[in-house]
Design a protein around this nucleic acid. Structure first.
Lengths: 135, 135
DNA sequence: CCGGATCCTGGTCGATACTG
DNA sequence: CAGTATCGACCAGGATCCGG
């Protein structure tokens, strides 16, 4: 393959955009880059070992619909980010919990959230400035 | 005012999903969580001080259409992540370059990319396993 | 030859109603 | 309580044409 362009650029972390190499990135973005996945993971990370029920999650993630919560939960479960525990009771009870994998994904997510906390004001200013000088 | 953000974002433990507190997160996800923004930033980060032309970017980001490249570039420019340099020449030339803000966003993005590098196989396995035990 | 604007379709998301 | 089913609105995004 082409490792030449990885080292040729001389950056500390050489990055390319060829589709073969960014396929995992694209795929992951398609998953967790959607409207709700990250918020779901964050909601489940409140406490270590935290387990939440469906309705609990729906209450804590502002504005999510039942349908989207179901879909997002399934996605994340399929990707091994969370586990689903069904209790054969009446009324039915289902609890969701982050797996170690999902928990580890929260690390980079926290980095991102941190960045936002630091730079959000700058982005807002940039937008205002851009909108002003653009007719 | 960002003084009041106590543990809203970036706190080590307490994370919530109330819409007021996650508004920046939701907003940023809406921006860079789309199909192309991160790939664009990555493409522009090949070298420090790297400047790329439109067609150059289109070539390096596999599969992006002109329209989407234009849109994505505008978004990122508006958010202050990159700057646009127009040269009054024939044929016309426009160059794009990351701003310090855009450059700093690459830090968390790299963290994410690293995570993918480490955990992608596990996700793939989880999917296979999930698909097998699901009718 | 570059880069931007226009038209149109397909997928995604939300609202609502219903079931185990 | 925890989902599933169906429908419709909306917008991302691809093809295509346009301006310089």
């Amino acid at each position: 393959m082409k490792k030449s362009n990885k080292n040729a650029v001389g950056g500390p972390t050489a990055l390319t955009c060829r589709s073969e190499e960014t396929e995992p990135l694209r795929d992951l973005l398609a998953k967790i880059g959607d409207k709700w996945s990250i918020l779901l993971l964050v909601a489940l990370s409140r406490k270590p070992g935290y387990r939440a029920r469906f309705s609990e999650l729906q209450r804590s993630i502002d504005g999510i619909s039942q349908r989207m919560l179901t879909t997002t939960l399934r996605q994340a479960e399929r990707d091994g980010l969370l586990s689903r525990h069904v209790f054969a009771e009446v009324p039915p009870r289902v609890e969701y919990e982050l797996t170690p994998l999902g928990l580890s994904l929260l690390e980079p997510i926290r980095t991102l959230i941190h960045w936002i906390g630091h730079n959000w004001d700058m982005i807002k200013e940039a937008r205002i400035s851009f909108d002003r000088r653009t007719p």
